[in-house]
């Protein structure tokens, strides 16, 4: 019995932008703390009893000694708004740690670009920190406009390039525009890790496939159980699943991180 559902105390809460929040959660005294791989996530339950499903939120940071995890999430609906309304000292019900993260070993020694778009940005921070000293990392962070978040944390962790859709900060355009601008200057990545909206992931997948670059994509899908039982959150795959016999994978347990050549980002 390895997986748990537990109560974690909110020890810090900060509003980063109009709809983005950062919370730090502390493990309970009894909790057995295992290492977290970047790209893994937790299921966070809204405090109101009429909400039954956990919200998948990626790990933005993990401080094992301090027994803390950091989550950064967007208030997308009433469930996440309820979570954001909690205060320091309140407890949150958390399921996890869930899912498979990035394969750090495959990135060892490689010039690696981390691409984060919108609410896909937070997990890249923990990945950048974990890759420090292991790979030559550049982070490409894409925002809509000047309402950025976590930029200082990224700059402290690695080389960071910012892109905004309106051009208010950094490169005008998306993360791939920024990556291609650098590529033209001769700094071409040997590996890509991406998390963000589906159109961005499709573009990154195409970019990597055309150039035969090792590329990991972190997918997002509406989830129910979060543990692989309900089959609510599947994605299309190139080959048939060994057990299910159909070309589908469970985002929550087979992913959320997949090697790009394994997944088909269309239905």
């Amino acid at each position: 019995m390895a997986k748990t559902q537990s109560l974690m105390a909110i020890v810090e809460k900060e509003k980063l932008t109009e709809d983005i929040y950062r919370i730090k959660l502390k493990y309970g005294r009894e909790a057995k703390i295992e290492d977290i791989i970047p790209g893994q996530f937790v299921g966070v339950y809204p405090p109101q009893k009429d909400k039954i499903l956990p919200r998948p939120v990626s790990i933005c940071d993990f401080e094992k000694e301090e027994r803390l995890i950091t989550l950064v999430f967007r208030t997308a609906g009433c469930g996440t708004r309820d979570i954001a309304s909690l205060r320091e000292g309140d407890e949150l019900k958390v399921l996890g740690i869930l899912g498979n993260g990035y394969d750090i070993e495959q990135l060892r020694g490689k010039k690696t670009a981390l691409l984060g778009g919108g609410i896909g940005i937070p997990p890249m921070l923990y990945l950048a920190k974990k890759l420090s000293g292991i790979a030559d990392v550049t982070c490409y962070m894409g925002y809509r406009d000047s309402h950025t978040f976590l930029l200082d944390d990224f700059k402290a962790a690695s080389k960071t390039v910012t892109a905004t859709e309106d051009g208010s900060i950094g490169v005008k355009g998306n993360v791939l525009d920024a990556l291609q601008a650098d590529a033209q200057k001769g700094t071409f990545p040997e590996a890509l890790c991406a998390c963000g909206p589906l159109p961005m992931l499709r573009a990154v997948q195409r970019f990597a496939a055309e150039r035969d670059i090792l590329c990991f994509l972190s997918l997002e899908e509406r989830m129910a159980c979060g543990v692989g039982a309900c089959l609510g959150c599947v994605c299309r795959t190139v080959s048939e699943d060994e057990h299910f016999g159909v070309p589908l994978a469970r985002v929550c347990t087979d992913g959320p991180v997949f090697e790009q050549s394994q997944v088909v980002l269309e239905w």
Binding site: K51, I52, R222, F244, W267
Partner: peptide, 26 residues
Amino acid sequence: PWEGNPVPRVAETPSGMLNAIGLQNP
């Protein structure tokens, strides 16, 4: 084996949820 339905397959509703998994099974 059945493939089931396209995603999104689940949604939360007040004090409940909707699912349309479509009986995916091996």
